[in-house]
């Protein structure tokens, strides 16, 4: 009786695996590998990788890279020395911290909390179709994300140029595109409000 139970259990599991394998071989569909990626152009020097454990961020005061990119609808989005202070938020679709950060930030924006003299940009980076919540554009559209988005490329050129070490990642730039502050992790709307003040102070 015991061996019969074992044989039945083993047989059912084995049969199910064979059926699954057959289905997977028969049902291959092509996935567009370009979904979720852009082709941004980055100029200027690359910032050092952000080190949250360091007492001071060595990148503060350094000129940030300039980026010409586009969102998933090919609308051009640029980060340049345009005389306006700005905050750049790097997001990864699969990152639980980014998933926690986006809704309150969007609600904060919807409430009109971003002042007129500070710009907010976002970069969809570290995109990976094998990771959860892919593609990033579907996620951001579902969240009603209104922040201009630059789609990073497959090797994360934009993120790398700003020294991103983890997501979410905020970079505050003054009007001349110099780094005012960098911070990694969930900071919530309270933290974002502080970054906005720092951006305004830097001018």
């Amino acid at each position: 009786m015991n061996k019969r139970i074992l044989a039945i259990v083993g047989g059912v599991v084995g049969l199910a695996l064979i059926v699954l394998l057959a289905i997977s071989i028969a049902g291959e569909t092509e996935v567009d590998a370009s979904i979720g990626y852009g082709d941004p152009v980055v100029t200027g020097q690359t910032l050092p990788v952000y080190n949250s454990a360091a007492a001071e961020d060595v990148a503060v005061g350094m000129p940030g890279p300039e980026v010409v990119g586009a969102d998933w609808e090919d609308n051009e989005v640029t980060i340049t020395a345009d005389g306006r202070p700005k905050i750049v938020l790097f997001l990864a679709h699969w990152c639980p911290h980014c998933q926690n950060e986006v809704p309150p930030v969007q609600a904060w924006l919807d409430a009109g909390n971003l002042p007129d003299d500070v710009d907010l940009y976002s970069v969809a980076t570290s995109t990976d179709r094998l990771r959860p919540n892919w593609p990033p554009q579907d996620w951001l559209e579902e969240e009603g994300w209104t922040v201009p988005v630059i789609m990073d490329d497959q090797i994360g050129t934009v993120a790398g140029s700003f020294g991103m070490a983890g997501t979410p990642f905020y970079v505050v730039l003054d009007g001349d595109n110099n780094v005012v502050r960098r911070i990694s992790g969930e900071i919530g709307t309270a933290g974002l409000a502080i970054l906005v003040q720092e951006a305004q102070a830097a001018g």
């Binding site: 699969w94 990152c95 997501t167 990694s184």
Partner: peptide, 11 residues
């Protein structure tokens, strides 16, 4: 507080 872009265990 942040995700390691290489491979976080929280994903």
């Amino acid at each position: 507080g942040a995700c390691d872009p290489t491979n976080p265990c929280s994903a």
